[in-house]
Design a binder for these strands. Structure first.
Length: 126
DNA sequence: CATATGACGACAA
DNA sequence: ATTGTCGCCATAT
């Protein structure tokens, strides 16, 4: 019946993660753990990976701006995904030396505004 | 309910 | 700098 589209906790969690990733500005990157924290999910780095793994096709979420805290791309060097991600990052002038990105230089540093703005909850509307 | 898995991360050798 | 372990945590079997 009509009572079908009820968002599960998981769906809302993924929505928050995707929304956070959408805020990463072009030319910068963020680690899985960083996204998790901003999204209000401490120690939820793996959940971010899960959310990305489940991104609907054609999504506008800039998945390629999410990399490991170590500065490395999460996919194997020889994988298609790795090359695609590296390509997209370089396309926005993010330097990748020997498969690694300088976090000191490209790590996203959200404004206090954004940080205060998001975790306030209330997005679970609906 | 017990294990295994994974687009992670911190840390010890 | 690399590599291996172990901790985390939602899902999948």
């Amino acid at each position: 019946m009509v009572c079908k589209e009820q968002k599960t906790a998981t769906e809302r969690r993924m929505a928050r993660i995707w929304a956070t990733i959408r805020d990463i500005p072009q030319g910068s990157v963020a680690s899985y753990g960083q996204i998790a924290e901003i999204a209000g999910i401490p120690r939820g780095a793996r959940q971010v990976g899960y959310a990305l793994r489940h991104l609907p096709r054609g999504s506008d979420v800039p998945w390629f701006r999410v990399i490991q805290a170590s500065g490395k791309i999460a996919f194997p060097r020889d994988s298609r995904a790795f090359r695609e991600q590296a390509k997209r990052l370089r396309r926005e002038d993010v330097a990748i030396l020997d498969g690694r990105i300088d976090m000191k230089k490209y790590r996203w540093q959200p404004d206090l505004d954004e940080l205060l703005w998001k975790p306030s909850a209330a997005w679970d509307e609906d």
